[in-house]
Amino acid sequence: MTAEGDENYLTTAEVARRLQVKPETVYAYVSRGMLTSVRARGRRGSLFAAGEVERLASRSVEHSGVVERIESQLTLLQDDELYYRGHPARSLATTATVEQVAHFLWTGQPIPSGQPGQPEAVDGFVVGREGVLLARRAMEVVPDGARLTDRLRVAVAVLGAADPLRFDLSTPAVTAAAGTLIETLVAALPGPTAARTTLGGRLWPKLSDHEPRPELLDATLILLADHGLAVSTVAARVAASARANLYAVISAGLGALDGQYHGAAPTLAYEFLARAMDDPLTALSDQLRSGEPVPGFGHKIYQQHDPRADVLLELLGDHPVVDTIAALAERTPKLPNSDLAIAAIMHAYDFRPDAGDALFALARMIGWTAHALEEYAAPALRFRTLGIYTGRTT
């Protein structure tokens, strides 16, 4: 390929200076299709279109390689508020069904008008008896002491292996598979099956023996559905960039979620709150003495309040556990976050101790699906970065 004029072209040395990398790295970009080199008549060496170089420079370029900038239309975190496609999540949590919000995130199609909170307002997720039986058998393979999230990971892998059309990455196929997967996982979890109700209502008897309050779990699933580029979401997007199928994408997300600094947060808050309900001041003192952060308090993004916690604690009303949280909040400058709100729900209705992680995982499957759909529409394999070898050369 040749350049017709060199006034809009840069030499290799000029590109290296602009991108703050070595000339060898420039050629590595060429080999990976990130830059296109051209030749000019009468000149030696490669030239590069200035516009293409500027587009590459607009990304975050470091000595270790290029970090791809991820553009998304899904979630906005701004001024201590959470928005899904421009709509406040706190409003959606109390006026829409989980299925409605999922389809809204997946397709961008407006939520249809109808009786708020009623499953008839939109087509629900589809579930098949055969899939539920298969998922249950998969979940039964794990040891008795395994967590619900362990059962979910195994079931997702098995259901994916059983789906011969899993490599259909079209939007209708992916959204249908995601809805069926989530519904199947909920139905397959140990515990009784509820009559026709909302998704939160069907999940409730799997987690608690108390009189159901479906609106609590529906709101929780909606508020936790997505939260921007959390580490598990990035893992899911990287898998989708390689054109992994939906089940593999969700498995990637579940793998990252299993880390102690991510998906385990609700359980840590649950355990801390259990101690605090007996004696808030002593529990807080012991936690501070340990030098570890106080579980359920503080957030890297929210400064004054976590809107997800606001909604869930308000739905709990005047339950005594809310008084415990208020007592703790008076003695720490950090805000109560969604992990603490989930822990409060768990204590208020005697959920099984591992319910918080499972709630987080099931909810985030909605967001991972939405991010996968965006990634399927983007260039494939765009997340490969350049590594710097630091080992021995001889």
Rank of each mutant, 00 (worst) to 15 (best):
E4F: 07
E4T: 14
E14Y: 09
R17W: 06
R17A: 15
L19V: 10
E24D: 15
A28K: 10
Y29E: 11
Y29H: 14
R32K: 14
G33A: 10
R39Y: 11
R41M: 03
R43I: 02
S46V: 06
L56Y: 06
A57V: 02
S58P: 01
R59C: 03
S60Q: 12
S60H: 12
V61C: 07
E62F: 07
H63E: 11
H63I: 08
S64A: 12
S64D: 12
G65M: 07
R69S: 10
L77S: 04
Q78C: 11
Q78T: 10
H87T: 11
R90L: 04
L92F: 09
L92W: 05
E99T: 12
E99S: 13
H103I: 01
H103S: 06
L105E: 08
G108H: 10
P110V: 09
S113M: 09
Q115R: 14
Q118W: 08
V126E: 13
R129F: 09
G131P: 03
V132P: 03
A146C: 13
T149S: 14
T149L: 14
R151K: 15
R151V: 08
V156A: 06
G160C: 11
G160Y: 07
A162C: 08
P172H: 09
A178H: 06
I182N: 01
E183K: 13
A187H: 11
A187Y: 05
A188T: 05
L189C: 03
P190R: 05
G191L: 09
P192E: 12
L199S: 01
G200E: 03
K206V: 04
A240K: 05
G255F: 06
H262V: 03
H262R: 05
G263P: 02
A265T: 00
F272L: 04
F272K: 00
L273Y: 01
M277D: 05
M277E: 13
D279I: 02
L281F: 09
A283S: 08
Q287M: 02
R289W: 00
G296H: 01
G298D: 13
K300R: 15
K300L: 14
Q304P: 05
L313R: 13
L315F: 12
L315Q: 15
L316P: 02
G317R: 13
G317P: 10
G317I: 14
D323C: 08
I325V: 15
E330W: 09
R331F: 01
P336Q: 14
I342E: 01
A343Q: 04
F351Y: 09
F351E: 02
P353D: 11
A358F: 08
R382D: 10
R382Q: 15
R384P: 01
I388W: 07
T394K: 11
